[in-house]
Structure formats: C-alpha cells, structure tokens
Design a protein around this nucleic acid. Structure first.
Lengths: 148, 148
DNA sequence: AATGATAATGATTTTTATTATCATTTAGTA
DNA sequence: TACTAAATGATAATAAAAATCATTATCATT
C-alpha cells in the first residue's frame, strides 16, 4: 500500500518536472525516494545523510535544491519552528493539517479541525482578505512529556 | 492617552529588569521609547536606524540585545514570516491576536476570533496536549492589493 | 548513435541574520 | 568614592540557505 502511494508520489513529481521542462536524473530519483520513505518532518541535512548511503557522490546542494523543487511541486512544505533548522514535510495533494508543537521534546503532531478551517475563511472574508493558505501551530506540552 | 500606555509600558519594563537585577541605562531608555513609538512590527535593523538618530553612538548589538530582553519581559514577541527578517511586535499584557499576511505587499493585519481560540483549546485537549500559546497566520491577498 | 543546447550537479563561496566575544565603560551599592 | 558586575560597542563567529561556476549529464533533434 505504501508502495502505491510512493508510486503516486513519484509520478506526481515526474509530471511536475516534465511540465517545467526539467530533467530526470539519478540524483532526483534517489532523493525523492528517500524523501518519501523518510519520516514526516525531515531536515535537509538528515535527508542528505540518508541519501549519501545510497549515492555517496551526492552533494549537499543537490539535496537542498531538490527539496526546494519538491516544495515548488507542492509535494513538500517548509516548516520552521523556533530556531530549529527548516524541516520539510511531505504533502500528498491538497491534504492540509495543523501542528501541535511540544515545547519539551520538539515533537510535531499533525491535527485537523474543519470548524477551525471554516472560521478562518470567515475571519478572512470579514477583513476583505482572500486567503490562500494558512499555518496554525499550537505550542505546549504533549501527552508523553506530561506523563514523564 | 498614548502617553499613558507608554508610561505603563516603560514601567513594566523597568519592573522587569529590576526583578532580574539588571541595570537601567540611557540606551535602554532610548530603545524602549523608540520601540514603543515605532510601528507595530519592526525589525531590529529598522529600530536601530531610528534609535541612531537620537543616540548616534549606539551599537547594533545593543538594540538587538534589548529587543531580546523585551521579549523575555513579554513586552515584545518575535514574528517570523517566510524569509523575512524577524520582526518584533509590541505586546501589552496578555492581549493576543493572529495575523493575516499579504503575499503581495507583505502587510500584516492583526485579527482576533474567540471561537477559533476556543476550538483550538478543544483540539489540543482532544490530543491530550496542554496548549501554552499558539500562532495562526493566514496568507493571502489583502483588500488594498486586490483593488490595485 | 552523435550532436548540441542547456539543465543539473558538486564543490565552494557568498550572503545574511543573529549570537558570541571581549576590552572598555558605566551603574548602582556598600 | 571605590568596587563589582552588568552593559556597551566593535568586531568576530556561527550557521543556514542561496548563489556561483566549471564540469557533467540529459534529451530532443538529426
């Protein structure tokens, strides 16, 4: 099942780079594979270290560049929390979610609330503002850290 | 009226540094004054340029340090939007608000919605997460930019 | 299959914001 | 007034991400 998703993910990427007139390379293959298989919120450095194992000649810049490219293809999104390094989150299609951020362990928990989404639309409209996207982060202490 | 707020603001600052056993300096005086009187979302660089006019010998580091100090006193808060420089926002007491961020002109509009706040509490609770603070940013196009 | 245009790569440098360092000055008290 | 430690100002360090650039690889065309 994960393989099906992976296939879809890669196909979307391929379609996207073809639309842009970009090229298919071995490095891109390896990077996109690794990005899909990695955790949900990875830094460029972490991804670089993973990719290096499969493709030792790869350069850091290539990983960084292709993460940026994934963002342009809407397959990844930057998340910046406090002073942490930018993390890159996988995005399948239009699925959106917000984050609970634990201030103790740094864990990111993905959440969703339709009512909040709708109220945000309303709030924007009230200000004659056309919303395109949004970011909601709730900072606090996660269940695990509370029980410790 | 603004002067009363300013007085309160400065008193809070003075109280805060005294609690921490820190000292009162001319530079702090000038920086806090300028910060209060400046726009709602200022960068350290902008503030430095303002302060320099009243106090030309001042160093950038001093402005930066005191902005950080204001944050520790809960009189300022960092706002980081995209790749922009960190901006510092005035905070009076506990007043909280969210932001509409215009993707065209970069303008920040402060908004508030009690219902959203309450739903956030609920959402956190549902995940056994103790919320401390949150950040909601809605990105889109502001009224001014739409009419252009 | 060879060619040529140009995108991509990898190594490195640059940029840029913020923090740290440190000698000197200053504040606040004893 | 002197002393102690905080604050300052100039500068260096840090660190993440972007830019540069010579070289290599891709891919449409022939």
């Amino acid at each position: 099942m994960d393989n099906i998703n992976k296939k879809e993910f890669k196909n979307t990427f391929i379609k996207c780079i073809e639309e842009k007139g970009l090229r298919h390379t071995k490095q891109r293959e390896v990077i996109v594979d690794a990005f899909f298989s990695a955790g949900r919120h990875i830094t460029s450095e972490e991804l670089f270290n993973i990719v290096k194992k499969k493709y030792p000649e790869i350069g850091y810049a290539t990983v960084q560049r292709n993460l940026n490219l994934l963002c342009k293809c809407c397959l990844a999104e930057e998340i910046k929390i406090g002073k942490q390094k930018t993390r890159y989150e996988q995005k399948y299609g239009n699925m959106h979610h917000d984050h609970l951020v634990c201030l103790k362990c740094g864990r990111l928990i993905e959440v969703n609330d339709d009512k909040i989404e709708k109220l945000q639309e309303k709030l924007a409209k009230k200000n004659n503002f056309t919303p395109i996207k949004h970011k909601l982060e709730i900072y606090g202490i996660c269940a695990d850290c509370k029980s410790k």
